[in-house]
Amino acid sequence: MEETSVPKFFMRDGALELSSTKELVHLEARDLSVYYGKRVGVGRVNLSLYRNRVTAFIGPSGCGKTTFLRSLNRMHDLTPNVRVQGQVLLDGSDIYGPGTDPIQIRRRIGMVFQKPTAFPTLSVYDNVVAGLKMVGLRDRKRLDEAAERSLQQAALWDEVKDRLRAPAAGLSGGQQQRLTIARALAVEPEILLMDEPTASLDPISTQAIEDLLGTLKQQVTIAIVTHNMQQAARISDYTAYFLNGELIEMDSTSKMFTKPNDKRTEAYITGRFG
């Protein structure tokens, strides 16, 4: 790597080679628009998530990152007066197509929210296996295994293995956030959507979650919204920049942070890096 405007520590080893390898499209938004009543939340987005890659969504607050993310697993279905237009192809078939069951879609495409949403009255264990029990898994041994595996993946196992039966409300914010990640992973989703998962966390928990993403992507495709430019640079393979409800551009993270095509991206990134 020669001179770039980005300090070296933002680059992860191997990130640059990505653009040369063959990428498989996992989820593809085509001409996707979301309307809140008459207002456009996000307009005409074309964007692909690649299999086993981490894609970061960046952009100023209110630019439509959350709105777009929630359209990828039909979370907007739950809010009145929200209209989604366009297509989202999961392995080539439209999740908004006729006869598609949103519940099945959400089982395949999991979501982690900005604020920890552990079920406070359920035990740590019951939180993790909630989704599995829902799909009818009753076998004790398999539930136990899944719980341990997911908690390991979420880097939480060591901290909670002695208090699996205690209510989740007793965990710290960072632990609860990792618990919700474990819960989302337990059902073995193909894709995990994360909306600023570390925004309300302390640096140590943030670190734990960032570390986790690197190994996690071997099994799942990840999209993560983040406000933190360094975080995007550290953890993602691809970066998409949103502004005023539009996707400005998306490219490999190394390219986006060194030679973005669009002046607006450059302004945002250099502005953010100071």
């Binding site: 979370m75 959400r106 929210f113 919700t180």
Partner: peptide, 16 residues
Amino acid sequence: APQREAAYALGATRWE
């Protein structure tokens, strides 16, 4: 509301 959404995001039906 986030509690409900969390359950929906796991693929829960309304009753779940």
